[in-house]
Amino acid sequence: MMRGMNAGVSAIKAIAINTFKEAVRNKILYNLIFFAVLMMAVSLVLDQATIGQRNKIIKDFGLASINLFGVIIAIVVGISLVYKEIEKRTIHPLLAKPVRRSSFLFGKYLGILLTLVIEILLMSFFFFLLVWLYEGGFDSYLLIAILMIFVELSVIAAVAIFFSSFSTPVLSGMFTFSVYVIGHLTSFLKDFGASSGSAIIKQFTHFLYYVLPNLERFNLKTHAVYHLPIEIGQLLFSILYGLLYIMIVMLFAVLCFERRDFK
């Protein structure tokens, strides 16, 4: 039994590291260059046009870009790295070994998270450097916003894996992107449903509110830039919310994946 457990952990670790290697060797992290170029372009433009709140704008842009680039990576990598294994049949020799299908999915997921962590760390380093150049200081509020961006990306990556556990990459991409967009609107939709007067719409928007991830919970960019007070309880519950959501989505992915026949 112990030996089985160890083999399972070893397998998950091996798959995670292999996934990260794939992302790196297939040059996924090259988009960091675009991030750097974008940030430099923004700061150059700001130097030309001095309109007062330069610090604010560089922070707005930095956080937004880290978020956006992260979302792109989470969706693209999340979908393609699972699908490719199935499409190119690299998963066949793997699953014929003592590797549970759930271990495969968790390994893939951890590999994608590792990729996201590295990506975010590098972007943040560059971002903080730029902020330091402008402000001459370190703004810890931004760190909290970036942490929450990472939670959001983790949720999106889990959703991407869930969809690609049973669907084609194009469809999975569309589904995941829709979840990302609607996920930012759920509380808004719920308010709308509540005031619409129609019971069906109200129930439907409530359903969306509880089923889709409420991604606005992880959006602390405004708080960070304006140094608005952040309640620690709210922050912790939001993180917990993200973790639970990830676990649920991954378990659904396992359910779908467990009985799948491979061509």
């Binding site: 509880y210 309880g233 519950f237 939001s238 919310y241 639970l244 959501y245």
Partner: peptide, 26 residues
């Protein structure tokens, strides 16, 4: 096991949503 876990986690998630709803201030 998976289904049981899912039910438990979903209940917890729902509770947290409710809890977080109370923080609406911004």
């Amino acid at each position: 096991t998976v289904i049981l876990l899912l039910i438990l986690l979903s209940a917890a998630l729902w509770g947290i949503q409710k809890k977080l709803d109370q923080y609406k201030s911004v």
